[in-house]
Simulated assay, not measured.
Amino acid sequence: MAQAWKCSGLRWSADGPVLVWHGGRRTALTWGKRVAFGVAEGGVRTCVGARGHACPTGAAVSGRSTGARCEECARLDRAHSVAADTIADDPRPYRVYLAWFGPGMVKVGITAQERGSARLLEQGAVCFSWLGAGPLMAARRTEELLRAALRVPDRIPYVEKRAVRAVLPEAAADRAVEVAELHARAVALGGWPESLAREPLRVVDHLEVFGLAGLPVAVGEVGELVAGGVVSGELVAAAGPDLHLATGGGVVVLDTRLMSGWELVPAEGSELTVPVRGFKEKAGVQDGLF
């Protein structure tokens, strides 16, 4: 019987995307690499736990959940996250940023300064600029100021990000326009916390890092993994948690968060046999199974 592995998720290193497995094994991903794995026959997806602790009940979770956590572990994980707004005494400096994912898709967010641009890579930001840096509460107040005054959201659904990656403007200057315009409007606002130092516009572009130049239009995305199912394709791009895989039926996007909680084995076939959702706004989209 083939050895089964459990995936801990996709991480971004200085050299590009890396799949991390339980036990510390890491698989570097490069363009053109074949990504192929199967889900163990008769397997059940189980909760990955929270904050480094195993789920006490080993609860089964939905194949469509990107969090791969049961209700209780999800609550515990959320309660200790910066995004939940429940942590007020974090002494680390934070940065506020504007991130662009495609035309009309700009969001505001915060991240610990020590993390650098890792958060932007994890979210699949095609380009971004810092806005300011300071204490956590000042960063939060600035984020809320921008959301209210400029109507900039703090999150954008991944399905929207995925659908436009192959039709992004070719010129970096064109990709930077919306970030530059919002940056100018943001720094001109009154009401910024005094403890948050504003930062000048410096747009960082991730198009080449993600391999999005010349990317074929994706026909759809993996909806979930299923016991006995196979994922197989050639890696043509990666952004955030997503792998863009060239398959016999076209390019399909795999959100690697769907891999967590399953026992995965080497693929015995070369076909994609898991459910795929078509991008409805695209013409000629295939729906259902490949």
Rank of each mutant, 00 (worst) to 15 (best):
C55M: 11
L150P: 08
G23V: 08
P193C: 01
L264F: 03
E41Y: 04
R119A: 15
R25H: 13
C127Y: 03
E199N: 01
E281F: 12
L146N: 00
A83N: 09
E263K: 10
G288N: 10
Y94C: 11
R175G: 02
R162I: 09
P103W: 12
W5K: 14
A118K: 14
A227R: 06
H244N: 12
W192D: 04
L258V: 07
L272N: 05
E194A: 15
R277I: 06
R26T: 12
Q286P: 13
T30P: 05
Y97S: 03
G63N: 11
E122V: 02
W192K: 01
H183G: 01
K280D: 06
P135Q: 04
A138L: 01
V253K: 12
E208C: 06
G32L: 00
W12L: 05
L201W: 06
R51N: 14
V152L: 14
R175S: 01
P216G: 15
S117L: 08
L207E: 11
V231P: 13
T66D: 12
A237H: 03
R277E: 03
L254M: 13
D15T: 15
A14F: 01
A118G: 07
A54C: 14
G42I: 06
L212H: 07
L168K: 09
A238Y: 02
V82D: 13
G24E: 00
T273H: 01
G16A: 03
V187I: 11
R119P: 07
A238S: 13
A239D: 09
D90P: 07
L243W: 06
E234T: 15
K107P: 09
V106L: 10
